[in-house]
Amino acid sequence: MHILQLVGIGLTATVLVAVLRAQAPQFAMVVGILAGAVLLIQVVQSMEDVVRTLNNLAVSAKVNHAFLDTVLRIIGIAYIVEFAAQVARDAGESALAGKIELAGKVGIVILALPIVTDVIDAMVHLLP
């Protein structure tokens, strides 16, 4: 990832969207979605090294692999949901954005449920 390149893409897309918004609002929205997707693709691709390093650390620390797996899944859900909600909010659909975020929150809670159960199990075992 080249930070200058990414910022350049963002600025170029911003100028294009700002000019297009007066002429053709629907195309402005589409350009916004496209630029956001391109930027996020680059960011996620460079995120891969971080995830791999975390994975190696977890393996060498002998942490239960399911925990890190859950955390990574939650991060992935957060990225997708944030992207979709911002697109919806950008198009003036705040209500829809709220629903998308609600869906993401529910998904995260469902994913985190096994960890919570594990913690409560451990606490119950500690109690006399």
Binding site: A37, L40, I41, V44, Q45, L72, G76, I80
Partner: peptide
Amino acid sequence: GYVDHLYKEIERVFL
């Protein structure tokens, strides 16, 4: 197509 690519990338890296 690009959004599909984004979903696939996130799935590959995180999920």
